[in-house]
């Protein structure tokens, strides 16, 4: 009996592992609420893989534990003498191969949607984000769609607005971010947007998203734009960038509509002007 106890021990631990995954979504240990247009596709693929892997986890775990129980040591007996079985080998090669191929192929279109440069939708709002040790510098043009966006991403214009770590957009807008870094590798990560992209030294990388929900509203009392406390969508850095890696925190403000965004943009311009009363052009580095 002591021999068979080991199968129960293994079974208990594997069952615990299974139960943790079964319980986790109901106690809030799960995917953050999705707010991007391609997020449902990402989540669907996640659940497809979870389904297949969960099935094989239970199957192999059950076989292992049962075999450990059933075939525990008995004196004066011999194991079943068999060297292999070609049919079985072919079966458990071909079936997983088909499943894996299905999983692999089903990813391609979503990956294409999220990342392929040629597939990105025409932007309603263009901005440029520069990561640096340790914050995000967000650069906005004075209008949502600057002329020749690609060139604007490389060469700042005189009336650009810079905000540290605040990303503003509006619900339903196709947002195009030109992602750069000033120093080391960083990675732009928004869990709720299901979006992650490294910022690569010396490169400008286009990133896009479209938020399906808003979290920002104008507070007439304070004259500020407030975020719904239950919808704090943070930006995190996902690529080690030195000691302050953990505190490269940003915040995403999704306005209800374009009008709200433009209203906010006007206010931001005003604030920027009040910070620079003489309207001098930004100092050009001597060299």
């Amino acid at each position: 009996m002591q021999q068979k106890g080991w199968s129960i021990f293994f079974g208990a631990i594997l069952l615990g592992a299974f139960l943790l995954f079964a319980v986790a979504p109901f106690v809030g240990w799960w995917l953050p609420a999705n707010v991007s247009t391609f997020g449902p596709d990402v989540d669907r693929l996640f659940y497809i893989i979870l389904g297949f892997t969960g099935f094989f986890f239970v199957l192999t775990g059950a076989i292992l534990v049962y075999a450990m129980y059933r075939f525990a040591w008995r004196a004066n007996t011999k194991s079943h003498y068999v060297e292999g079985n070609h049919r079985l080998e072919i079966a458990w090669t071909v079936v997983p191969a088909i499943i894996l191929l299905f999983i692999a192929v089903s990813q391609i279109s979503t990956w294409d949607t999220i990342k392929y440069y040629a597939s990105m939708p025409n932007p309603d709002l263009v901005m440029q984000v520069t990561a640096r040790q340790w914050d995000w510098s967000m650069r906005y043009a004075d209008k949502p769609q600057p002329d020749n966006a690609r060139a604007w991403a490389e060469v700042p214009a005189i009336d650009d607005i810079y905000l540290p770590s605040e990303l503003h957009c509006w619900k339903g807008a196709n947002v195009r971010i030109f992602l750069k870094t000033q120093d080391v590798l960083h990675s732009f990560f928004s869990p709720q947007l299901r979006l992650k992209q490294d910022a690569l030294p010396g490169k400008t990388i286009p990133v896009w998203f479209n938020a399906t929900d808003a979290n920002t509203s104008y507070n007439a009392k304070t004259g500020k734009w407030d975020i719904d406390k239950n919808k704090r969508w943070e930006i995190a850095c996902a690529e080690l960038c030195g000691g302050g890696h953990y505190r490269m925190q940003g915040m995403i403000y999704v306005h209800e509509n374009k009008e709200d965004y433009l209203k906010w943009l006007d206010g931001a311009k005003e604030a920027a002007r009040s910070r620079q009363p003489e309207k001098k052009p930004p100092a050009v580095a001597k060299n």
Binding site: T60, L64, M68, F71, H80
Partner: peptide, 9 residues
């Protein structure tokens, strides 16, 4: 797993 099946562990 097949090796364990029918074994004498």
């Amino acid at each position: 797993l097949a090796t364990l099946w029918g074994a004498n562990i």
